[in-house]
């Protein structure tokens, strides 16, 4: 599976309006909803927030990957948001978060869900790529960078 299958440019938002963890998650779910990918936005928000409570998905180096499963999802979907200012996500390295990647999946697609999570975290493990994507401003730039880097792997 490639990230280009689950991410489209209209699901990238930069800058995000939200300035706090829960608001940003809600905003990204709304982005997916507007793109017609979510049937039960409230249920999805709740699922992502519940997952966030077990442990922060701010996995360090400025990246957070909130995610959740919801029966209203037809297929795996991804949204990316860049906060206007680095955001407190209670990340494991206590650093503010510069990019939020939301992954939403139907409950029966566990394998793809995990693969997508792994792909995103692997993508962002390259320091030079992180520098590039944190410097990107527009949704188009961010989208291009992600798709290009993912295809090159």
């Amino acid at each position: 599976m490639q990230l280009s299958e689950i991410l489209s440019v209209e699901c990238v938002r930069s800058p995000l309006a939200g300035t706090e963890k829960q608001a940003v998650i809600g905003e990204l779910v709304d982005v997916l909803t507007n793109a017609g990918k979510v049937q039960d936005p409230e249920g999805l928000k709740q699922a992502v927030w519940t997952r966030e409570q077990t442990r922060t998905t701010g996995i360090g180096h400025g990246l957070a990957i909130p995610h959740g499963k919801n029966a209203g999802m037809k297929s795996l979907a991804m949204a990316i948001g860049k906060p206007a200012e680095p955001l407190d996500f209670e990340a494991i390295d206590n650093q503010p978060v510069k990019l939020v990647v939301l992954l939403a999946s139907p409950p029966d697609r566990t394998s793809d869900h995990i693969q997508a999570l792994a792909r995103v975290s692997r993508l962002m493990s390259s320091e030079s790529f992180r520098e590039k994507i944190y410097a990107a401003e527009t949704p188009e730039e961010i989208f291009e960078l992600v798709i290009e880097q993912d295809a090159g792997r």
Partner: peptide, 9 residues
């Protein structure tokens, strides 16, 4: 936890 990605995988 039921909410984590690895549940049911």
């Amino acid at each position: 936890d039921p909410s984590v990605a690895a549940c049911d995988a």
